[in-house]
């Protein structure tokens, strides 16, 4: 008789798990799929920034950084625009810019130095990772697109699929679209740190 209850209990537990949202059946309430994202480019004072996720970034680096290095690469453009840009002393200080990616539920991912990402992939790919990293130093009106690399490894419950970060919380899966996420960092302007943030386009 007690075995019957044991079987019933196991069955109930299995039913319990399957009733919760899974990757294939996310709860509509927390897919965050229909919330509005942030502008993927912004002019804040003299600083212009744009960010985009490229699903085909493996063609740039020769390797899928998400799968191979647990890294989310975001292409960034940071430059100066507008009156006074030539006189401004604005720069990205790699030691103090503190770039991070904020997901829609408030989870933050830190940026990794390019050399740390390069160490996670084959040498020939690592060279590209370092070469294509967002240039730091003095900003000008000619800032070229470069990449920031955000670390997924610190969150073992994260996965990335189709411009969407999936986060497991208490056994349930949240689908957090990159469209609704922000990249933030500090620009050093005239000796002072000034926060900047921008949404992520495609």
């Amino acid at each position: 008789m007690s075995r019957m209850f044991l079987v019933a209990a196991v069955g109930l537990c299995a039913a319990c798990k399957s009733s919760f949202p899974s990757d294939s059946d996310p709860t509509p309430h927390l897919t965050f799929a229909d919330t509005r994202g942030f502008p993927a480019q912004k002019l804040d004072g003299l600083v212009y920034g744009a960010a985009r996720w490229d699903e085909r970034h493996d063609e740039v680096f020769g390797v899928d950084l998400v799968r191979t290095a647990d890294v989310l690469p975001i292409a960034m453009t940071v430059q100066l625009r507008g009156a006074g840009q030539d006189e401004a002393r604005a720069w990205l200080n790699p030691e103090r810019m503190g770039a991070e990616l904020v997901l829609a539920d408030g989870t933050t991912l830190p940026a990794l130095p390019a050399r740390a990402v390069a160490a996670r992939v084959a040498e020939r790919h690592g060279e590209r990772v370092e070469r294509r990293a967002l240039a730091t130093g003095l900003l000008s009106s000619r800032g070229e697109e470069g990449w920031l690399y955000f670390d997924l490894a610190g969150h073992d419950e994260l996965d990335v699929d189709d411009a969407c970060v999936e986060r497991s919380v208490d056994g349930r899966t949240r689908r957090l679209l990159l469209d609704q996420s922000l990249v933030t960092f500090d620009v050093t302007l005239d000796g002072r740190e000034q926060p900047f943030c921008v949404g992520i386009g495609r």
Binding site: R96, G98, P110, A116, G154, D186
Partner: peptide, 15 residues
């Protein structure tokens, strides 16, 4: 209460 990925000094914490 949500943690940032940066330290109070501004650096990314895993740097």
């Amino acid at each position: 209460f949500l943690p940032s990925a940066r330290t109070p000094t501004g650096a990314a914490w895993n740097l």
